[in-house]
């Protein structure tokens, strides 16, 4: 129980009539990096957004099945979606800093939680930026607009912003897809360091990235979970033919 963070049971998601996720059942281990791979449109991002209930924002979506996080069904009627999102942070594909200063971006989550004390905020901002390995680059320009940063810096700032609310699980939706190779490798290093403290689920279309960063890999295809296992096993001897075809580049 302790090393299984998320237990998904028969989770299906519908966009109106269309079934986009088909009876997903899987387990996500704690303090590990789990990669979700698959061709575009296979439902991996949709599944990721189910974990912190971002799909609630789309009116036509309906969900059946269970999503147990540490044994609590987050789709239970009595569960508060805002508290879920505080515990399960998310980093998006496109870096999306607020049009505010770097400092205010990181402090945002704390401020909305009612923390306004300057010293506490300073500390949170510094810790978070250090954790995101971007403190040294930014410490002298915390007052500048976050929009002036490079793409890679923006994305790491977004990670720092997520860390600042001290979540338990971090969801990353193709965090490096829009970045240059150097920034990408920085993000990958960061993911590697962060898994000590956080459970990380990362969606990627880049198989090398999945192989490099993750401990476990789940392969999605056409809204179904085809196969899941230890990353090195999935990549070396996949059980299902579809997985093998995808990994060897025969489609996708």
């Amino acid at each position: 129980m302790k090393d299984i963070k998320i237990q998904v049971n028969d989770l299906s998601l519908y966009y109106g009539e269309k079934k986009a996720l088909k009876e997903i059942t899987m387990q996500v281990p704690a303090n590990k990096v789990t990669a979700l791979i698959g061709p575009s449109g296979c439902g991996k991002s949709t599944f990721l957004r189910c974990i912190n209930r971002m799909n609630d924002l789309i009116p036509s979506v309906s969900i059946t099945g269970q999503m147990l996080v540490e044994g609590v069904d987050i789709y239970d009627k009595n569960v508060d979606v805002v508290n879920i999102r505080k515990k399960i942070g998310m980093v998006f594909q496109k870096s999306n800093p607020f049009p505010k200063s770097i400092y205010e971006n990181v402090a945002y989550g704390s401020r909305i939680n009612g923390i306004n004390d300057k010293n506490t905020l300073d500390e949170i901002v510094e810790t978070s930026l250090r954790q995101a390995a971007i403190w040294d680059e930014l410490k002298d320009r915390l007052g500048d607009s976050a929009l002036g940063l490079s793409g890679g810096q923006q994305q790491r700032l977004c990670i720092a912003r997520t860390l600042a609310v001290s979540p338990d699980i971090i969801l990353m939706d193709e965090p490096a897809s829009a970045l240059d190779p150097i920034s990408t490798s920085k993000i990958e290093e960061l993911v590697h360091e962060l898994k000590e403290q956080y459970t990380i689920i990362i969606v990627t279309h880049n198989m090398q990235q999945a192989a490099r960063t993750s401990d476990h890999t789940a392969f999605f295809y056409m809204g179904e979970l085809i196969e899941m296992g230890k990353t090195n096993e999935i990549f070396t001897k996949p059980e299902k033919k579809q997985t093998e075809d995808y990994i060897t580049g025969r489609f996708g």
Binding site: M54, L57, K86, N96, F98, G109, N113, T162
Partner: peptide, 26 residues
């Protein structure tokens, strides 16, 4: 942009907090 609203919500902001802090200033 929708991304900004999502960023705010994903940080655990409520709807009104998102509107007040992100949407209205913009």
């Amino acid at each position: 942009p929708r991304e900004l609203r999502e960023a705010s919500l994903a940080l655990g902001a409520t709807k009104w907090q998102t509107i007040k802090n992100v949407v209205l200033p913009g």
